[in-house]
Design a protein around this nucleic acid. Structure first.
Lengths: 326, 326
DNA sequence: CGTTTCGATCGAATCGATTCGATGCTAACC
DNA sequence: GGTTAGCATCGAATCGATTCGATCGAAACG
């Protein structure tokens, strides 16, 4: 009638193996040498007691780390709807994993302040403020911010939005385009930089409007715009998902792409449901993810980490062509 | 020249406030009543010392919980490419969050055995085995498995794959279809159940082949199939993403949907890049996520949890119609 | 007025490891 | 042969809280 037997601890294992607690610990962690015979005796004792290894909670307390890094991405379902988000997450996860560190999703609006995080990645482009920021700073939790805002005390990983957008704009200009319209994202660091790049070349481009990188939203806003019969030869979008939506909506109205309308995107992700390759600015998404995760790990180790700026590359596809002549 | 000052602990706060450690703890946790004046004194002392609240690592050890639940979804970038995965994740996250519990992504191939997880959700339909399973069982970590396999000791959350598929098949049969082909997923519990449902009505349906729920993969395999000029009037897919790819590929070959070919999906997610509404089996994805998270939380609290089977619903859209007459 | 009850507070045990410094022992060196 | 190294092991301190049971005073009760 004994109740549930308490699960064995390292002390039990040490006793069973006839060694001290510290030796048993070393046998598992390998932090200092232990003779082969002793290690074997400890491991045998462990398996016969059903001991499954040192309790991570205890180790965490002792070492002052949780082995978990948080990542904030805004509302999950919308953040991951954009295919550009996934390779990023994949790369972050892979780097952390190989360091034995877990990745915790921080949903928007969740303070999570009761969870022990060794560092936090903020990858929610499209928002300017974040409630937990002050708290994290107060608790000295290292933060890595991807694509802004460049909050004080954080490490900043960014891509060359402005340069890429300027290169794209020059490409359009070379094709003879003079009247272009912009479909933008919500106000944010990347959006501002990219728009500045476009306006380096087309200072008075029209703005169609702003929407998230989401097919339905982009299609709706572009439909309204095309209804007005605008006098432009090209539409520059801020994501490939937006651009694909624009292509589809333009075609529904009998506009040929690129003969009647050139369309450009940003990101460089696959849009397999479209039968043409978009002209776009290709981000090194996986590099961005790796750099982010490595920065987070380095800051957990107390290292100073420099900000990162990654290059982008113009990819000329089939969605842009010579400006139509009126 | 004193080094970095150690950050204050609850003991420091208690001393500064002139109360005992236990009283200070109660002032923060509220687990037992503390007089208003004492609480105020403790909080004042805390803020003047820059104390940011009880160390979560210490609390975790004491309480034997980490406040984190893991979720395994296979390779991240592929798992989340299917839009059906996101509302699930969203619902799980929301329920956990409101319980103050974090959600940790377990990438495939990562053992994570050094991380303290209070429970694990396995949502990786399409795999039959999982390396960490034995270890988790040995460590008594509660597991909730979504859509199989129904491993011993786990709580099983499923949807009525077979019933939904059978209803879909009957719909096609009523429309006069007799020769149908199946585009399947990799061998897995949902796949087997759904196929059984179809074969309840069409015992000798052709199988086109198996592929993940991914546009490119589905399009490639269907292209090969259509090249053989198959004599079928309907294609039944196992996801809406697959079905959308089939519609697009069929149209590329001049086949009208549904006049020349009926196409059906599964899941009931939006496919905004398609200008027709798919006939599909609608899963209650958010309910599934909520039930999963609630089951996980209940098992963390040591409760017994019954398996869950959620109903599905046939949604007749525009992608199925009367069988063409030959 | 004596007794019971209840709320607030405190001291001490506890969660389960890691790790510092000390000790004993054997091997290597001059 | 005496000293120095170096490896394996051990004891004790430590990480930072939560919580059980005891204590103390004041209010409520008969």
């Amino acid at each position: 009638m004994s109740g549930t037997t308490r699960s064995p601890t390292l002390a039990d294992v040490a006793a069973a193996a006839g060694v001290s607690l510290s030796t048993a610990s070393l046998a598992f962690s390998g932090n200092k040498p232990v003779s082969e015979s002793t290690r074997a005796r400890v491991l045998d004792a462990a398996s016969s007691l059903g001991y499954t290894g040192p309790n991570p909670l205890a180790r965490n307390l002792r070492q002052g780390r949780s082995g978990v890094v948080g990542i904030a991405v805004g509302r999950l379902s919308t953040a991951f709807r954009d295919p550009a988000a996934l390779p990023m997450l994949d790369a972050v996860s892979e780097v952390l994993e190989s360091a034995g560190v877990g990745l915790l999703l921080m949903a928007d609006g969740d303070e999570q302040s009761r969870l022990p995080l060794d560092a936090v990645i903020y990858d929610n482009c499209g928002r300017e403020t974040w409630a937990p920021y002050d708290d994290l700073v107060a608790r000295d939790v290292p933060m890595v911010v991807v694509e802004g805002p460049a909050w004080p005390g954080t490490t900043f990983v960014d891509v060359d939005h402005r340069g890429g957008s300027a290169a794209l704009a020059e490409h359009l200009h070379d094709l003879g385009h003079r009247r272009v319209a912009l479909l933008t994202l919500e106000a944010s660091h990347p959006q501002r930089e990219r728009e500045a790049g476009i306006r380096d070349v087309f200072p008075d481009a029209n703005t169609i409007g702003a929407c998230p990188s989401d097919h339905e939203a982009a299609q709706a806003i572009v439909a309204g715009y095309l209804d007005t019969g605008p006098d432009v030869t090209a539409v520059v979008c801020q994501s490939d998902v937006q651009a694909a939506a624009v292509v589809i909506e333009a075609r529904r109205r009998g506009l040929r792409v690129p003969e009647d309308l050139s369309v450009a995107g940003f990101d460089g992700v696959a849009t397999p449901w479209l039968d043409l390759e978009l002209t776009t600015v290709v981000q090194p998404i996986a590099d961005k993810g790796r750099a982010t995760a490595e920065a987070a790990l380095a800051r957990v180790d107390g290292e100073d980490v420099a900000d990162v700026l990654l290059p982008v590359r113009l990819r000329v596809g089939e969605s842009t062509g010579p400006a139509r002549e009126d």
